[in-house]
Amino acid sequence: MEKIPILKMGSFLLVTIQVDLYDQLAENLESDLINMVKKTGAKGVLIDVSSVSIIDSFMGRILGNIATMSRIMDASTVVVGMQPAVAITLVELGLPLKGVYTALNVEKGMDLLRSKILQEEGPQDDDDDGDEDHTE
């Protein structure tokens, strides 16, 4: 069974989608990713869609689900590198991916996640971002 690799980078998880997702593969990704969030206690999930040429409502729903599920488990999701044509189509389709953060590329996505974590953890933890002292 084909699988989409999930990489752990510090307190973030990185998924790069490089093939057209057929339904089973997408659903597997959803559950794999959520399990990984639990196992690693990740604070953020980066989904790189820069080589995805089509996002239909099914795929959009999977992305939305991942975001909502990880939110419940205290991790933010950032979708990075969406192609212009894909963004235009999603808007026209009426699917603005509410609740999902977006960034231009992986690097900017990481910056965004770091700033979110800083915001949440607030004053008691200043310069120690990327530190994993979570108690769950």
Binding site: V79, V86, A87, V91, P96, T102
Partner: peptide
């Protein structure tokens, strides 16, 4: 509004 929504989807 559509243009703004598409820009945001790209992360800008």
């Amino acid at each position: 509004i559509k243009t703004v929504a598409a820009t945001r989807l790209m992360g800008a």
